[in-house]
């Protein structure tokens, strides 16, 4: 049986996560179908058709799917998913929102946030904020899985899958989209960036995040934050890195004025290189940093920017 992979997009662009999601799928089986559900999302379908290893792209283009409402998408994926051995989505806020509905409606478990595929039925996932790693085996007929894409490699965009339209409209009368306030940024997305520089409570206020921007510009980096910085209102919620925020694994992660609580480490400790800048030499972040620099960030950041 084939594997159904749910494509993450904004109706115009394919998100970078999908390339890694497909990599995870190829480790479970060989026949991959992608599902693009959205509204006026034909461009996305065309982009999805280029992902290596994919044989078919199903497109459900309907106003009911414009905002990815969990009730509608959940019904759609449940109906289509009955014929598949695995249903996969990225462990993003979209995937986390509708996939458990699919699992419940199919009466199977969901396996959340996998970081490794051992075989078609055995998967590895972090628990306890990544302080323990569980290997689980599923005997469910259909495996419903969300994937931590940072743990997989991007596939090539060299394929040419068949694109097939699906006319299944799943409207619901109980939930409705009201609005969205999306953060606009010219920078790379946190979860896709090669370099991430994050600020914590030590930044003192939102204005001071400008000190990170100059460096981010020079390194082509995304900017992240600790929960403390978000809670204090320095920066918006979508910048939070950690157990309950975004999970990142860039080549270089620079933590500035962040103490290194386990919940923060859970979101970045798989980065290839970690730099910590903190004035407290006892800060736990130094225990996992490859390069630690003890000192006042207000002095260090301008110097760093100047020397890049």
């Amino acid at each position: 049986m084939a594997i159904l992979v749910y494509v993450e997009h904004d109706n115009a662009h394919l998100k970078a996560e999908n390339l890694k999601l497909v990599d995870a799928a190829t480790k479970m089986g060989s026949e991959l179908h992608l599902l693009v559900a959205g509204y006026q999302c034909q461009d996305v379908a065309q982009q999805a058709a280029t992902l290596a290893g994919v044989s078919k792209v199903l497109v459900a283009d309907d106003a009911a799917y414009e905002h990815q409402l969990a009730e509608n998408i959940g019904e759609l994926v449940t109906e289509l998913g009955r014929d598949y051995s695995h249903i996969l989505a990225a462990a993003t806020t979209t995937g986390k929102n509708f996939m458990p509905r699919v699992a419940a409606l199919l009466d199977v478990a969901q396996i959340s946030d996998i970081i490794k595929v051992e075989s078609a039925d055995t998967f590895v996932r972090p628990i306890y904020a990544g302080n323990a790693i569980a290997t689980v085996q599923s005997e469910d007929a259909i495996k419903v899985i969300t994937v931590r894409t940072s743990a997989f490699d991007a596939v090539e965009q060299s394929g040419s899958a068949v694109v097939e339209a699906i006319s299944l409209s799943k409207e619901n009368s109980l939930s409705a989209f009201v609005g969205a306030e999306l953060t606009k940024s010219e920078r790379p997305e946190l979860t896709a960036a090669r370099v991430v520089i994050s600020g914590g409570r030590g930044m003192q206020n939102g204005d001071n995040f400008k000190l990170l921007e100059g460096i981010a510009d020079k390194l082509g980096a995304a900017i992240g934050a600790s929960r403390a910085a978000v809670d204090a209102g320095f920066v918006p919620n979508d910048m939070q890195v950690g157990q309950t925020g975004k999970i990142v694994a860039p080549e270089l992660y620079i933590a500035v004025g962040i103490s290194g609580a386990i919940q923060h480490l859970a979101g970045m400790k798989d980065s290839k290189f970690i730099v910590a800048i903190n004035k407290d030499e006892e800060a736990p972040i130094f225990q996992i940093a490859d390069y630690g620099l003890v000192g006042d960030l207000f002095q260090i950041l301008p110097e760093l920017e100047a020397s890049l």
């Binding site: 055995t122 290997t135 689980v136 599923s138 225990q287 940093a289 490859d290 390069y291 620099l293 260090i300």
Partner: peptide, 24 residues
């Protein structure tokens, strides 16, 4: 549940690195 827990392991420990003296 039809999902069996096969094993739980400690994550690979990250080695703390070095402290550098300055930005340079």
């Amino acid at each position: 549940s039809k999902v069996k827990l096969l094993k739980v392991e400690a994550p690979a420990q990250r080695q703390g690195g070095v402290k550098v003296a300055d930005v340079a």
